[in-house]
Simulated scan of single mutants.
Amino acid sequence: MSIFLAAVYYLRKLLQFADMPCNNLADRLKKARMLTGMSQVELANKVGISCSVLNEVEAGYRDKILRPTLLKLLTVLDKDILCDDYYLFVLEQEERLKLLVEKYGLRKLARLIGVDISSLDRWKKGDYQISRRYFERILELKLL
């Protein structure tokens, strides 16, 4: 299939699912998956995650995925559909937090967002994923 035909096919699919809501992770994941034309089982097998995790996220039982799972999903799914601002931040968490620490200092930034210095340092190193709550606090304070 030529690149042109593939693009036309994708645009057709995009229009077909244009009215689907994207209000939460479950909606975005389902829409992104449906655009690929894959079932949950096919997607889970292709990216190497369990079908039950995928099903629980799409059903809304899980409202969070961890970065390694997100990265696996993004090997197949459209980043612009799957990722909201929080998940885009998670993808660049180390770099973004490093810049904030350089600007405010570790202690001051930790105090501003209301978290332990050790937690902030672990997020900056990528050892742990920042929670949506603290990401929203960063946005609320207009630190980005």
Rank of each mutant, 00 (worst) to 15 (best):
V115D: 03
K98R: 14
L11G: 06
L109G: 01
K31C: 01
Q129S: 12
F135I: 03
N24C: 14
E58L: 07
Y128K: 12
E58Y: 07
L11S: 07
D27L: 07
K31E: 03
I49V: 14
L11I: 08
C22K: 07
L25S: 01
L100D: 05
K46F: 03
R133W: 10
V41T: 10
K125N: 14
L74R: 06
F17D: 04
Y104P: 06
S2Y: 06
D84Y: 07
M20C: 07
A32C: 12
L91C: 08
L71G: 06
R107W: 10
W123Q: 00
K108Q: 14
D121V: 06
L43Q: 01
S39I: 11
L74F: 06
E140N: 05
V90Y: 05
D84N: 14
V76N: 01
S131C: 12
Y9C: 07
D85P: 01
R12W: 09
F135T: 01
Q16T: 10
E95C: 07
Y61W: 14
L144E: 11
V76H: 05
V53W: 01
L82M: 09
A18V: 08
R133C: 06
R67L: 15
V115Y: 07
R33M: 02
L88E: 09
V57H: 02
V76G: 00
Q93K: 12
I49Y: 02
E58K: 10
N24R: 12
S2P: 04
D127H: 13
L43N: 02
K30L: 00
L88Q: 11
W123T: 00
K64D: 04
S52N: 15
L15D: 09
I3S: 04
E92L: 10
I138T: 00
S50F: 13
E94G: 10
L35T: 03
E136M: 10
D78P: 03
R67G: 04
R96W: 02
V8K: 11
K46T: 03
